[in-house]
Amino acid sequence: MIPSDATFAGTFPLTPHFTDAPGFRMHYVDEGPRDGEIILCLHGEPTWGYLFRHLISTLSRTHRVVVPDHMGFGKSETPTGRSYWLQDHVANLEAFVAALGLTGITLVMHDFGGPVGMGFAARQPDRIRRIISANGPTPFGQPDLFDRLTANAAVSPWFQWIAKAEDDGTLEPVLNNLGFNILSTLKLNGFENNAVINDTWIDAYGAPFATATECLGALGWAKGFPTGAHRFETPDPAADRTIRSRPALAIWGEADKTLHAEHFLPLFSAIFPSAPIERLQGVGHYCFEDAPETVSGLIADFLRRT
């Protein structure tokens, strides 16, 4: 776990907050006016709230931006004796939101934050005001979800490696040392903006995974796919109607090597057929790193218009 006061040479100068509501010490950023509209940013694999630092800077002038680190990531605790499947993270988020009393939420979801956020939306639809997917899948009971996951896995280097590594027993040894191979993992997934890579940046992304125990979160998210342990939430009819009525936006870096637009944007359009989709050429999986100004601007404009 990263020290609570770590700012990584001033690149993340944000006040740390903690809650024990999900049953472990969960870190979150809470910036902006207390009475502002709530933007809840959900990171994925293998990142943490640091991913959203540019977005926080942009939106916190006018909005309350809340950014939790999932269990096993960032400055949050990595408890032993807990499972790290999708359904666990959804339950953690539900407890977190209840503890903070958040309502009128705009979800901003990246990578695995998509399934976590949509799982939460299925359970708590009345708390959701808007949906923003930024290279984040939006599973919401679509009948072709499994087929799309399978088709994507066939062309994704990350998912191909996970399946092979789980089969030959190398998944744990590699991911248990994620702090030392964080850059190669990010590049495998489709990270394009090499100009931002320096020692501070690598330290910020590698620091949460200093020991094998601290890698339980990253290992769980990866291992849940080949083992079938992840459970995707299916909304009831009322939740489905509520979420489909919300304003939504998709932003997709088309150089994403892990989550291909052709397989995942149809999931978004199935829920929000008239919602805008911004496709960014030359931008990879980590769109918040590859094009932070562009992505932040698109989100800020969408908030103004809706």
Rank of each mutant, 00 (worst) to 15 (best):
25 R>C: 05
49 G>C: 05
271 I>W: 06
30 D>V: 09
68 P>I: 02
12 F>K: 00
90 V>P: 02
143 P>S: 13
221 W>V: 14
277 I>R: 08
162 I>T: 14
160 Q>L: 11
14 L>P: 03
239 A>T: 01
107 L>Y: 02
214 E>Q: 13
220 G>D: 07
142 Q>T: 13
162 I>G: 11
50 Y>D: 02
217 G>V: 05
153 A>W: 11
186 L>Y: 06
120 F>K: 06
95 A>T: 09
210 A>W: 08
38 I>Q: 13
251 I>W: 09
262 E>P: 06
150 T>E: 08
34 R>W: 10
15 T>C: 08
5 D>F: 12
66 V>Q: 07
286 Y>V: 00
191 F>L: 01
262 E>V: 14
216 L>F: 08
184 S>K: 14
295 V>E: 02
48 W>R: 05
149 L>Y: 12
256 D>L: 07
156 S>W: 07
287 C>H: 03
276 P>M: 04
147 D>H: 11
262 E>K: 15
196 V>I: 15
274 S>L: 05
18 F>I: 10
257 K>R: 13
155 V>T: 08
70 H>Y: 04
292 P>L: 13
158 W>L: 14
202 I>P: 06
171 L>N: 00
126 D>T: 15
17 H>E: 08
43 H>F: 12
182 I>V: 15
82 R>L: 10
142 Q>V: 13
106 T>Y: 09
244 R>C: 05
296 S>E: 04
57 S>R: 14
224 G>F: 01
114 G>I: 09
206 G>W: 05
185 T>A: 14
269 S>G: 15
100 L>Y: 10
211 T>W: 10
62 T>A: 14
198 N>V: 10
182 I>W: 11
189 N>H: 04
188 L>R: 14
266 P>H: 08
138 T>P: 03
100 L>E: 05
258 T>L: 10
283 V>Q: 00
219 L>G: 12
152 N>L: 05
221 W>S: 12
290 D>M: 03
63 H>F: 12
254 E>M: 15
269 S>Q: 15
85 W>G: 06
205 Y>T: 09
116 V>D: 02
278 E>Y: 09
50 Y>W: 08
70 H>A: 07
97 V>C: 00
276 P>T: 03
117 G>V: 01
116 V>F: 04
132 I>W: 01
148 R>D: 00
275 A>P: 01
247 P>D: 12
48 W>G: 06
223 K>F: 13
274 S>C: 03
276 P>L: 04
179 G>Y: 04
